[in-house]
């Protein structure tokens, strides 16, 4: 993904702004896997091309757990396990149902509306994944250091943060600023829900 972003950066027009985001949790530790995104973008012509996102099923888990696509993006759900899976989502932005399949038999799913789409497997209750559908193509995902760098059209911007365990509304994280030559530095300290214990049953005889 980072490679893609760098490729996109290379093709950037002159009028480009940079946002340097840092996300921390309530304890001040850098928070990974937070999605920092532009809420609105007037001009999408210069947006990076739609990525081919993929969430595979491996060892009866959804891998990766979090996939970010811009609205209109598609996600492939290849089954790399030997068992069947039946992926579904009842989430409002996108409800879909991929009845039992193996391998690459499932069609890719297109996510038109921005929002959080929670994906489960009907025959493996513990399997869970998230497709975050960003409203614009301008988003970044924090690394282990909690930082993300976004290249955006310059001008006034509204930036929000999503995290799977975010307590409260994404809208409340919204920050406004002016993106220009000088990097716009934004930082968030997020209050998180507890990490849920895995409900996956142990293997073997119990």
């Amino acid at each position: 993904m980072r490679a893609l972003l760098l490729a996109a950066l290379a093709a950037l027009p002159v009028r480009a702004g940079v946002i340097e985001a840092v996300v921390r949790d309530a304890e001040g530790k850098p928070l990974a896997d937070a999605v920092v995104f532009l809420r609105k973008a007037a001009d999408l012509k210069e947006a990076p091309p739609l990525p081919q996102a993929e969430m595979s099923q491996l060892n009866q888990e959804l891998d990766p757990h979090l996939v970010v696509v811009p609205a209109g993006g598609t996600v492939q759900f290849p089954n790399k396990d030997t068992t069947h899976h039946h992926l579904y989502s009842f989430s409002k932005p996108k409800s879909f149902d991929l009845p039992l399949y193996k391998g690459d038999d499932a069609p890719s799913v297109k996510f038109e509306k921005p929002g959080v789409v929670k994906v489960g497997c009907n025959i493996h209750d513990w399997m869970s994944g998230i497709v975050f559908v960003a409203p614009t193509p301008y988003y970044g995902r924090t690394g282990a250091d909690g930082s993300a760098v976004l290249t955006v059209p310059d001008g006034k911007v509204e930036v929000s943060v999503f995290h799977e365990r975010l307590k409260g509304s994404v809208d409340d994280t919204t920050r406004r600023g002016e993106a220009g030559k000088a990097p716009l530095r934004l930082s968030w300290t997020l209050t998180l829900k507890k990490n849920p214990a895995s409900k996956r049953p142990a293997t073997g005889y119990k």
């Binding site: 579904y88 989502s89 929670k118 994906v119 489960g120 497997c121 209750d125 513990w126 399997m127 869970s128």
Partner: peptide
């Protein structure tokens, strides 16, 4: 809980 797959 009703899970889909998170608690709904």
């Amino acid at each position: 809980p009703i899970k889909a797959p998170d608690i709904v």
